[in-house]
Design a binder for these strands. Structure first.
Lengths: 362, 362
DNA sequence: ATCTGGCAGTCGCATCAAACGACTGCTAAT
DNA sequence: ATTAGCAGTCGTTTGATGCGACTGCCAGAT
């Protein structure tokens, strides 16, 4: 017979694998040789398909849940599928429209932006939406203000260049007059404006000596303040929305145990935050700056996420990566659509952040 | 033979019902007559028990899931159990200690207090903790401040007497000088201090005429500001924590569907908030001000909560009920312990709120 | 008047075998 | 290289059967 070139055979095999993963994602049933022969339009008999399937299984892309069953993709199979996904699906125009509509609403603060973004991701994807906020440490202080609340109590408000606002109450050692507060605010702002949050403490304490004569009673306040800026502003926060979506897609998961452990991870945000932070760290180390990254099953690093996949997109402020957003859902998600969504939303968030920079000068 | 007095028989019936509900809550299996004869220590034969069970069933306190099964409490049965619960369990000393420990950490703001409270409720109860924040409308403004962020942008910060702080960015129609900002802040604070949030708008617009000569350009700003105070500060917020607890107690529920719809309600906070608001409204209309209230199954008003119960405690600020907190869990929860917990935490929150009042004067 | 033992009857559930059907892997033919 | 055919494996469905856990009722004991 006519001998086919090896490349062609390889090509066909890959194409078949793509088809299988895609089909499996949609139907969530093991794919059998007979089914492929009928549906895939390859014009091969089921026997031939079986041969190919055996190869793919030996290579670790597919596995059988039990002997007399079809094949399911392994994590390696999903990985192949995602890596060679030819088209990251563009979002439908209507969907884009609706998303932008949401961002058109005036959002002026980082927190609001991130909360809305996680809601959006969850709603559109029908999975859980996650957004990790930039760590405040790297942001620089734009404004720091003490507001008298009566008596010794003041409210301390810090705003950073990236739009983050944090506030917390403090009790002073004395009852300040309005004049004193104004003076103190002026002093503080001169000192900390533009200083990265993580260095506020050093900056303020360094300058403390200079004012000792005039505002001696402020000295310890300023010191305490500097400490609090470091302590309170620093914890980064993780916004997760749409956990209920995951539960209502429970069929997508094999076992309820899997859903439970997934939910538990969502509950203990710290562990998930750690996973996402790793995305940020690793975003610099790659050659090709692929914006959208997919973690399949245990690739994310948590055994609890075995049955899940995570689609993420780091976002930058200026030229530094400051945060990461994405969706968390079943390993059997529609990768193409999800990647498209995450990519799009990620860009919108970046755009919004840089808009804030521009408005600055106005 | 000796005739028993009717009251005694009634008494015994009630006692048995209590025992059954309690036993069912622990074991989650239908309770049968034979089991009762053995375990309840009543010194009656199973046949006699059966007679009593039939009566209780006819009266609507018990039901059989199917003919050849034991009995389960109906909602009415649970209701009886809860209403006649003799001892609302006091929390163990160690548990109280741990809880107070958490509140000892300096919490100066309403938001923080409520978030921590919902976490606490969820952690201790192993159910979901819910806290509905006071509506801002009824609170009065303690302080309102504009903070310049450079250019025309200002950050508007409002603090209320109950410890609520809200902030949002605004763009002015002009670039204010620091002096102008100070003047504006002084003016605004004179006008709105102590005014209920819902009346800020009226107050400010009423006073606008007076300053027109001096600060004509402020007029429209002040108007816009007043509008925003009403709009942004008003939405009350619902804090829910520990949804994962509910999922990991899924065995407590008969059907996964029930867990799903429960989770969905938790996801759409609005509907749950509505239920909780009703608790606030109805808290005034009762003769006996029982602080802890229990809603069993559909009593809460949402069909989705059919399999759940809600234990709540309204909390007051001064003498007005401003919010409600509690736990949400399976209908088969340990009511006694949960009621004790909710009662205790509710009191702590009230205590904290009135502490703030006292600090005020210092 | 109460309680109890006994017994028939109901119903869910676990068990088991048998039949089924969905696959695969292999082999021999094309 | 591909295919048809076939034997063999294994999960799943089905239906029958029996068991056990109940209840309800009644007749007799207390």
């Amino acid at each position: 017979m006519r001998q086919l070139k090896p490349e062609v055979v390889e090509q066909r095999k890959r194409h078949l694998l793509q088809w299988i993963v895609h089909y499996y994602i949609r139907t969530s049933k093991p794919v059998s040789s007979g089914l492929i022969a009928e549906e895939a339009g390859l014009d091969l008999s089921s026997a031939t398909i079986r041969n190919i399937l055996t190869e793919l299984e030996n290579e670790g892309y597919l596995a059988q849940p039990h002997t007399s069953a079809g094949r399911e993709p392994t994590d390696k199979g999903y990985r192949f599928f995602v890596d060679y996904l030819s088209d990251v699906q563009r979002l439908a125009a209507g969907e884009r429209e609706r998303i932008e509509e949401q961002y058109r609403r005036r959002i002026g603060e980082l927190d609001t932006l991130l909360v809305e973004t996680s809601r959006l991701l969850s709603r559109v994807s029908q999975n859980a939406g996650v957004v990790l906020s930039p760590t405040a440490k790297k942001q620089s202080v734009k404004r720091l203000e003490l507001i008298g609340l009566g008596g010794r109590n003041v409210l301390c408000v810090v705003a950073t260049d990236a739009g983050l606002v944090r506030h917390w109450p403090m009790a002073l050692a004395f009852t300040p007059t309005p004049r004193q507060l104004t003076a103190l605010n002026n002093f503080l702002n001169e000192q900390v404006k533009g200083v990265p949050v993580e260095r506020v403490k050093a900056q303020v304490t360094a300058k403390l000596g200079e004012i000792e004569r005039e505002f001696r009673e402020f000295a310890d306040l300023a010191g305490e303040l500097a400490r609090e800026v470091g302590a309170i502003v620093s914890p980064e926060s993780l916004y997760i929305e749409g956990a209920d979506n995951i539960l209502s897609q429970a069929e997508q998961f094999g076992d309820i145990k899997e859903v439970q452990s997934l939910m538990r991870v969502i509950g203990e945000k710290e562990r998930l935050a750690e996973v996402l932070e790793r995305e940020i760290r690793e975003s610099g180390t790659e050659n090709l700056p692929a914006r959208v990254r997919v973690r399949i099953g245990e690739e994310a690093g948590l055994p609890e996420l075995k049955a899940a996949s995570l689609v993420t997109h780091v976002y930058r402020h200026g030229d530094r990566v400051v945060g990461v957003l994405g969706i968390l859902g079943s390993k059997r998600m529609e990768y193409s659509r999800m990647m498209g969504l995450v990519d799009y939303v990620g860009r919108l968030v970046e755009a919004r952040l840089s808009e804030w920079d521009e408005e600055e000068g106005r």
